[in-house]
C-alpha cells in the first residue's frame, strides 16, 4: 500500500475517550451510592476492575494481541465498572470476581474481543451470578446508612465482604437488605400502599430513600453523554418511555403492583437505560432499530419485574434484546438517499 486512503483528517474521538467519558458520567451516581449505601460499592469496584484488567491482559497475551494497545482502550475497565455498580454492595468478594471473569473471558474474548461480543459483557456477568448465586445476589443489598440501626465503617463492609461465612450474622443482617423493588413487591401482598409508603425506606427521602438520588445522578450522567454525542437519545428514551407507559397501564393501582415512580427510581432502571442498554457493541445500530431495541428492553423490564421471580430485570431484558439486535438491524435499515426515487 502506497499511501493511506482519505480522509486524512480525523475527528477527536477515540475509543479510549468514549469509554472514559462513559466511566466519568457514572461517577456522580457512584458517589451517591457510596454516600447512601456505604463502602461496599467501592470495594466491589476495586475488585472488579482489578480482576478485569488482569484477565484482559492474560487473555490478550494468550491470543497474541498487543496487550497495552487493547488494555489502554478502557473497555475492560468500563465493563467491570458497570458490573460493580449493578452488584449488591455487600456480596462476598468472590461475587464481583467471578462476575467479572465471566464478563471478560466468556462474554467478551471468547466471542472475539472488543467489538465482537453479541451480548453485553457486564450483563452476562450479572446474569451468571444471579442464576448461580441467587441468595448472595438478592439479600446483600445495602441498607441506607441513615436507616441503619448503627453506623458502619469501611472496615465493617470489608469484614462482611471478605470474611465469608465466619462473619457475625448480626453484622450482616444489620447492614443488608433486599432491593426496594423487591421489598415493595413482597410486602404489598400483606400491606397496602399507604402503609408501605410510611416505612422509612419509602418515606425518609422523597420517593425511595437513597435510590432516588442515585437514579437522578445517573440520569444527569446520561444527559452528559447525550450532550457529548457519545450516545443518542433513542435507546434511553425508548427504554424509559415504554417502561413508564406499561407501568401506567398496568400498575395504576399501587396496592397491587409496584408503581411507576419506583420502577423509574427504585432500581437499576436509569443505569440500564443510559449506560447499559446503550452499550453500542451489543445494541441495535440504526436509529429506528435503537428505538425498537430500547422499547423491547423497557417492556421486558416491566414484564420480568412484575410477573417474574427476579428482583430486578435490567440484565435479562438487555440480554434478551441483544439476541434480537441483529434481526432488528436487518429490518430497520434506514432509507438510503435516492432509494426508491427512480
Amino acid at each position: 500500500m502506497l499511501t493511506p486512503s482519505s480522509p486524512h483528517a480525523v475527528g477527536n474521538q477515540s475509543v479510549q475517550q468514549v469509554m472514559f467519558s462513559v466511566w466519568a458520567a457514572t461517577l456522580p451516581g457512584f458517589a451517591a451510592l457510596i454516600w447512601f449505601f456505604g463502602w461496599g460499592y467501592l470495594i466491589n469496584a476495586v475488585l472488579a476492575v482489578a480482576t478485569a484488567l488482569v484477565a484482559e491482559a492474560i487473555i490478550l497475551r494468550l491470543r497474541r494481541r498487543p496487550v497495552w494497545f487493547f488494555l489502554g482502550d478502557g473497555s475492560a475497565l468500563l465493563t467491570a465498572w458497570l458490573l460493580a455498580l449493578a452488584l449488591p454492595p455487600l456480596a462476598p468478594w468472590w461475587i464481583p470476581v467471578i462476575g467479572t471473569l465471566a464478563a471478560i473471558v466468556f462474554a467478551k474474548h471468547l466471542y472475539g474481543g472488543l467489538g465482537n461480543n453479541p451480548f453485553n459483557p457486564a450483563m452476562v456477568g450479572y446474569a451468571v451470578l444471579l442464576i448461580s448465586f441467587p441468595v448472595e445476589m438478592t439479600t446483600r443489598w445495602g441498607i441506607p446508612a441513615a436507616l441503619a440501626t448503627e453506623a458502619h465503617s469501611l472496615l465493617d463492609s470489608a469484614r462482611v465482604i471478605f470474611a465469608g461465612l465466619r462473619v457475625d450474622p448480626a453484622l450482616v443482617d444489620g447492614m443488608t437488605m433486599a432491593t426496594p423493588l423487591d421489598v415493595y413487591k413482597n410486602d404489598i401482598a400483606t400491606l397496602d400502599a399507604a402503609e408501605l409508603r410510611a416505612e422509612p425506606l419509602f418515606s425518609a427521602g422523597w420517593r425511595v430513600y437513597g435510590w432516588e438520588w442515585v437514579s437522578g445522578l445517573y440520569l444527569l450522567g446520561g444527559l452528559y453523554l447525550l450532550w457529548r454525542r457519545i450516545i443518542t437519545w433513542h435507546i434511553p428514551v425508548a427504554v424509559l418511555g415504554s417502561l413508564t407507559l406499561l407501568a401506567l397501564l398496568f400498575s395504576w393501582n399501587p396496592d397491587l403492583r409496584v408503581p411507576v415512580d419506583l420502577h423509574l427510581l427504585g432500581g437499576a432502571t436509569m443505569l440500564g437505560a443510559f449506560f447499559i442498554a446503550t452499550d453500542p457493541v451489543s445494541a441495535a445500530t440504526s436509529n429506528r432499530g435503537k428505538l425498537v431495541f430500547g422499547a423491547g428492553i423497557g417492556i421486558l423490564i416491566y414484564v420480568i419485574r412484575t410477573w417474574g421471580n427476579y428482583p430486578d430485570a435490567v440484565a435479562f431484558a438487555v440480554l434478551l434484546m441483544n439476541f434480537a439486535a441483529p434481526l432488528i438491524d436487518h429490518y430497520t435499515r434506514p432509507r438510503v438517499y435516492g432509494e426508491g426515487r427512480s
Binding site: Q13, V15, V18, F69, F70, D73, S75, G113, L114, G115, N116, R229, I230, T232, P280, V281, S282, A283, T285, S286, N287, K290, P334, R335, V336, Y337, E339
Partner: peptide
C-alpha cells in the same frame, strides 16, 4: 481498533 459498533458513522453519513 476494532469497530465498537458505536453507530457514530451512521449518524453522519449523508447518504443514509
Amino acid at each position: 481498533k476494532p469497530c465498537i459498533r458505536c453507530g457514530q458513522c451512521e449518524q453522519v453519513c449523508p447518504a443514509g
